[in-house]
Every structure is written in structure tokens, then in C-alpha cells.
């Protein structure tokens, strides 16, 4: 990668005159110049983001108001149908009122419920387990580096690979999980983890928690490391029980770190696609909003309805973020005050 490629641009960039640091007007001029340069520096990024994020988002939302299908998406023959993809009321000749559209679709609400259920349980579990792992890593002991290296492994493994790995381990006939659980007598016959509707969600949760707890743990650990050590020393001298110290001192201090970690994870969980698409492809008990929308778009070629679902997901996530930031008063930009 050569930054030298960009040097010619530097020649065109306005050369700042020698700053008269003490003169008020010179400083103001310098400031103006820096702001001009800042806008120039931001421009390429903004253009790129407009092209790959803002425009496609706008188009996806626009598709949700049309009857676009795989055949009409490119030739402009799709028609504007207003909110019909969301909800459409029609009166039959016999006076019977019919409702159609995503918002009255049982499959959609099933997917919403699955997504919410999955997000709540997975983020909750990851928070508790991540906290435990972080507390362990925050203690000083021999081999701490080794443990930290080990927990980075699940994080580094591609989701597709972990879905495959666990799919194999959870296999009903040859899976090592069934083998182990039968070995210690937890179950008396093999469970079809990924195929059975009772256990499919559990399987997905196991894999997700395994893969993403390390991320949670590392973020919480970073928070823990900012708690001054003297605090613990002082509490120890005062004879306060460690559990009490944790809830009264540590937890309030690492609250910002936890809030940030939770929202990062929650956003990931709400949009989950790959793991469920690969681990439990046919299961109604795990299908999420992203998976359902993808199915509609790619398998059925229904761009109108698929985009309606993706737009609703976008709105739900945006609403969640705004609510969370308001309630948690999270300062993500570190820019306030």
C-alpha cells in the first residue's frame, strides 16, 4: 500500500502561510483553513458511504413500496403499490374483509419473536459468562496470556466455519456432543439438536455464545483494567466481602464498558443471519428477520416483500438503538461535555 500515490494531491492542497500564532486574526484564519481541509479530507469517505450505504438503503426502502420481482427489478416495470406490502385491506365481493401484507403475516411475527428471543437470551448469557471470563482474566495468575490467547480463537474463527464445526459436533448420529452427554448419562438417546424444533434454538444459542463471549469478555476486561487496583486493596483492608466489592464498587465503575459491549452485541444479534442460515436452515423455530427477508429476496425473488421485511428490521434496530442510547445515556462518541 503506498500513500505516496496521494502525494500529487498534496501539491494542490492549500499551503498554509506561516501562522502568526499570537495575532488573533491569523489564528482565526488558520482555524478556517483547517476546517476547509477537514471537509476536503472527509469528502472521499462521505462519497463512498453515500454510494454503498445511503443509496442502497434508499433503494431498498423504495423497493418495499413496489411489486418488484426478480424479473422486473432491473427493467423498471415494477409498479408502485404504496403500503400494500406492509398491510393491504381488501373487501371481497361477499363483503368479507381480507388483510394481506408482512404486518399481518404469521411467519413474519414468528421471525420477529425468534429474533427477539435469540437476542435477549444470547446477549444475556454472553454478558454473564463474559463477565466471569473477564474477572478471571483480570486476576493475576500464571498463564494468563495463554488463556487470553485461547479465548481469541472462537472469536477469530469465521462464523461459517463455526456453524459447520458445531453442526458436525451436534450431529444427531455421529456428533461428539451426544456421545459425551450419553457417556456421562445426561441423556439416554441421541438428540437431533439442529433438526428438532425443540432444540434448534438451543443449538444456535450454544454456538453463538461460544463464538461471541470472548468479544464481550475483552470489552469488559478493558473496563475492569481501568478500575484502580488501590480500590481493591482498600476494600480488602477494610474487610469488605469481595462479592460486595464487586456489586458496590466494580460494577458501577465498569457500567459504561458494559453498556457499550451490550449494544454492540445486541446489534449483532438482532441482524443475525449466517449462523442460523447454515446451522438450522429449515427450522421455523429459529428463522430470524434477516433469514426470512433473505429467503424472500433470493429464493422467491420477491423484492417487494423482502425489502419490506428488511426495511422493518432496519426500523426496529434504529428504534432500539435510539431507545437504548436514551435510557442508558451511553456516550458512544466520547465527545460530550
Amino acid at each position: 500500500m503506498s500513500h505516496a500515490d496521494m502525494v500529487p494531491e498534496a501539491a494542490n492542497a492549500p499551503k498554509s502561510p506561516p501562522p502568526e500564532v499570537n495575532a488573533g486574526s491569523g489564528e482565526a484564519e488558520l482555524q478556517r483553513q483547517r476546517i476547509r481541509a477537514a471537509y476536503l479530507f472527509l469528502l472521499p469517505m462521505l462519497v463512498m458511504l453515500a454510494l454503498v450505504a445511503a443509496w442502497p438503503l434508499f433503494r431498498s426502502i423504495a423497493f418495499s413500496f413496489t411489486d418488484a420481482s426478480a424479473n422486473t427489478i432491473f427493467n423498471g416495470e415494477s409498479e408502485w403499490v404504496g403500503f400494500d406490502n406492509y398491510v393491504e385491506r381488501s373487501v371481497r365481493s361477499n363483503g368479507e374483509v381480507r388483510w394481506r401484507g408482512v404486518l399481518v403475516d404469521g411467519d413474519w411475527w414468528n421471525a420477529v419473536w425468534n429474533t427477539v428471543r435469540f437476542s435477549l437470551v444470547s446477549v444475556g448469557l454472553e454478558l454473564v459468562l463474559g463477565m466471569l471470563v473477564a474477572l478471571v482474566l483480570n486476576a493475576e495468575f500464571k498463564g494468563r496470556g495463554l488463556v487470553r490467547a485461547a479465548i481469541l480463537i472462537p472469536w477469530a474463527i469465521p462464523t461459517v466455519v463455526s456453524a459447520r464445526m458445531w453442526g458436525w459436533m451436534l450431529n444427531d448420529q455421529f456428533g461428539v456432543i451426544n456421545y459425551m452427554m450419553m457417556g456421562v448419562g445426561l441423556i439416554d438417546r441421541p438428540i437431533a439438536w439442529t433438526a428438532s424444533s425443540d432444540t434448534a434454538m438451543i443449538a444456535v444459542l450454544i454456538v453463538d455464545v461460544w463464538k461471541t463471549t470472548p468479544f464481550m469478555a475483552l470489552l469488559i476486561l478493558a473496563g475492569l483494567q481501568m478500575v484502580p487496583r488501590d480500590m481493591y486493596e482498600a476494600a480488602k483492608i477494610d474487610g469488605i466481602h469481595p462479592v460486595k466489592v464487586f456489586f458496590k464498587v466494580t460494577l458501577p465503575l465498569i457500567r459504561p464498558a458494559i453498556l457499550v459491549a451490550v449494544i454492540f452485541r445486541a446489534l449483532d444479534a438482532l441482524r443475525i443471519f449466517d449462523l442460523i442460515y447454515l446451522l438450522t436452515p429449515q427450522s421455523d423455530s429459529t428463522v430470524t428477520m434477516s433469514v426470512l427477508s433473505y429467503r424472500e429476496l433470493q429464493q422467491f425473488g420477491d423484492y417487494g416483500e423482502g425489502s419490506t421485511m428488511s426495511t422493518l428490521l432496519f426500523l426496529i434496530i434504529t428504534g432500539f438503538v435510539l431507545l437504548y442510547l436514551k435510557i442508558g445515556r451511553v456516550d458512544l462518541a466520547g465527545d460530550k461535555g
Binding site: 477537514a38 472527509l42 438503503l57 431498498s60 449483532d268 428488511s310 432496519f314
Partner: peptide, 29 residues
């Protein structure tokens, strides 16, 4: 500069975007 905080939040927002929300638009693009 003015709008810096808002811009930062927008950038963070884009990075945590549900990918599926732009899928059909990107497919067209």
C-alpha cells in the same frame, strides 16, 4: 467543526447497520 458529533454517530451507525437492509439496493447497484 460543526456537526462532528453527528457525523461520528452516523459513521458508527453505518458500521452496525443490518446488512440485509441494503441487500436489495446493493444488488441493484
Amino acid at each position: 467543526f460543526r456537526g462532528r458529533g453527528l457525523l461520528l454517530m452516523t459513521i458508527l451507525g453505518v458500521s452496525m447497520f443490518p446488512q440485509i437492509a441494503v441487500l436489495s439496493g446493493l444488488y441493484e447497484l
